[in-house]
Amino acid sequence: MTSMAILTIFALSIFVGFEVVSKVSTTLHTPLMSGANAIHGIILVGAITVADSATSTLETSLAIIAVILATINMVGGFVVTDRMLEMFKGKPKVKKVVEEGAKK
């Protein structure tokens, strides 16, 4: 990849990043932070890449620790975000069911 291509990708990604979260209500700040946190767990891909080509014991051990940490970041991040959002979403449905039940 040329440096110019990388710079282009980088600059455009900044704008996309700014744009997608510019209008978000305070209610969603915590889940959004947690979700973004899970996304940077993608460093797992980097950790696997370096572990995959590591040959010395030192490099392998460091890379394997990185894989463990990155997995915790990524998997834990998505699970905890889902738990938060589950609570937001479940409610109106439950209420509807109760209301319908009351009508009958």
């Binding site: 980088f10 946190n37 940077h40």
Partner: peptide, 14 residues
């Protein structure tokens, strides 16, 4: 690069 930059940019705004 894309994922990291997205989080960096959106995180700054957030």
């Amino acid at each position: 690069i894309v994922a990291g930059t997205l989080v960096g940019a959106s995180g700054t705004i957030l």
